[in-house]
Structures are given as C-alpha cells and as structure tokens.
C-alpha cells in the first residue's frame, strides 16, 4: 500500500518543490531586514491578509467580478473565434478576406487597444468584456483555422463516400478532426483573456476586480494585498487548467490518441 502511495507523494512533492524553494528564499530575504517589511512582507503577512480579506468577503467579491468578466469575454471569444476560424478554414473567400486582418491584428499587444475600447464602450464592464473578447479571439481564430486545415483529406473522402453531406461532415468529421487545435486555441485565448483583463482592471475602468485590488493597494503600500491578489489569480488559472482543460482533453483528444497527455 505504501508502495502504491509513494509515487503519488513523490509526484506531489516534485510539483510543489519549486514553490517550496522560492517560498524559502522569499522568507530568508523578507526576514533578513534588507527591505522594509511594508515593501517585502514575509509570507505569514501575506497569508494573514489573504485570510482577513477572504473572511471579510472583499477578496471573494473581487475574484467573483474578475471571473465573471473573464468568462463573459472569453465565452464570446470562444464562440465567435471558433466559428470564424472554421469558416476561414472551409471557405476560400472568407480566408482571403479575413486572414490578412487576423494575422495583422494578432501580434498587436492587447493593451494597445484598451484606451480605444474604453473610449468607445465606456469605462466599466461593457468596455472591459468586449476588449477581453476581442483580444482573446485572435489565437482562437488562428488555431481553429489551422485545425480545419489539418483535418485529413482521407477522413473527408471516407465520410463523403459513406454519404455524409456538408452539415454532417462538419459535425462528425471537421469538428472532431480539428479539436486538438481548437482546444489549444482556447487555452491560448484564455491566457490572453487573463492578461488583458487584469491590465484593464488596473486602468480603473471597473470598481471591483483582482486587477483593481492589486493596483489600488499600491497607494497604501499594501504589498501583502498585492501578493494576495496575485496568488488568487494564479490559483484561478491553475483551477481552470486542472478542472476544465485537462479533463476536457483527457476525455476527448487524449482518449482518441490525437494528442499525448
């Protein structure tokens, strides 16, 4: 029994080891007195702040607002991005029309659009969500397009010879065939959404949100609150990866042998 348990323990240890090392170094520096405690708080201060803000309901409120915007913006990006990418992959005309725009827009840092979007759509949720959706859509479009292009001709021929018309070809062949790339695109899109969302929350466009918590905390030198906010952002990202993307992949493309885990 111990033998069976020990590899899992070792796995957990090897994942957490780098964090333990960094935490230990952090503690040493924080407690050495090199920097003022307000600027470089020991971890216990951060943990205490995290607990206090959570208990007071402040941190959950910030986190909730951020997650709601993230899911809103990312949700729009996912639906529109996958649809557009597949359209471009299937239609030569759509590809010719949209590809130059998409490939020009994709490398522009999302933050560059922020002032424009906030002017157009106003400070607040609408501007933030639209900006997140817009920026996150680029990698989703590009990867979905690649995915459609990567669907093997032989699958299409096999399906057609077995009587699949356009619509069922799409549903039963193109979509699952492109799925490994679509999932990659969604993952990249979510990362983009995170970045731009936290940044745009700092531009004070919204009253609540983790980005705003972190940015607002600087006025009072609340580095412990900043670090608590960063920790929550990291935890949410990790949770999405572990609880959404990995299970989704394991259930589909990994099970089908189209991607190794």
């Amino acid at each position: 029994m111990l033998d069976q348990a020990s590899p899992r323990w070792r796995g957990a240890l090897s994942v957490s080891a780098p964090f333990i090392v960094v935490a230990a170094l952090w503690e040493i520096v924080a407690r050495s007195g090199t920097f003022p405690r307000r600027l470089f708080p020991p971890l216990e201060d951060v943990a205490e702040t995290l607990a206090r803000l959570t208990a007071a309901g402040i941190l959950p409120h910030h986190a909730f607002e951020t997650i709601a915007r993230l899911l809103g913006g990312f949700g729009i990006a996912a639906l529109a991005g996958v649809a557009l990418g597949i359209l471009m992959g299937r239609s030569r005309r759509a590809e010719d029309l949209l590809m130059p725009l998409v490939s020009t827009g994709a490398p522009i840092p999302g933050l560059a659009y922020a002032p424009l979007f906030l002017l157009w759509f106003g400070l607040g949720n609408v501007g933030a969500v639209i900006l997140v959706a817009f920026v996150a859509a680029f990698p989703i479009v590009l990867n979905s397009w690649t995915g459609v292009k990567a669907v093997k001709e032989i699958w299409i021929r096999a399906a057609q010879s077995m009587g699949a018309g356009d619509r069922r070809l799409f549903r039963h062949v193109i979509l699952p065939g492109a799925l490994p790339y679509i999932l990659t695109g969604l993952r990249l899109g979510l990362a983009q959404a995170w970045r731009i969302l936290v940044a745009v929350e700092m531009l004070a466009a919204v009253p609540w949100g983790l980005g705003w918590l972190i940015f607002g905390a600087r006025e009072f030198l609340n580095t412990d609150a900043m670090l608590a906010g960063i920790a929550v952002i990291g935890a949410i990202g990790l949770a999405l990866e572990k609880l959404v993307f990995q299970p989704l992949e394991r259930y589909t493309v990994v099970r089908w042998g189209m991607m190794t885990s």
Binding site: A158, H172, P176, W256
Partner: peptide, 12 residues
C-alpha cells in the same frame, strides 16, 4: 472504399 492509409479511420 478502403484506402491504403491506416489513418483513414476516424480516431474519435
């Protein structure tokens, strides 16, 4: 139709 390529089956 049966093709030469093993990849003709739908992996999903």
């Amino acid at each position: 139709i049966v093709f030469q390529d093993f990849a003709q089956l739908f992996p999903w």
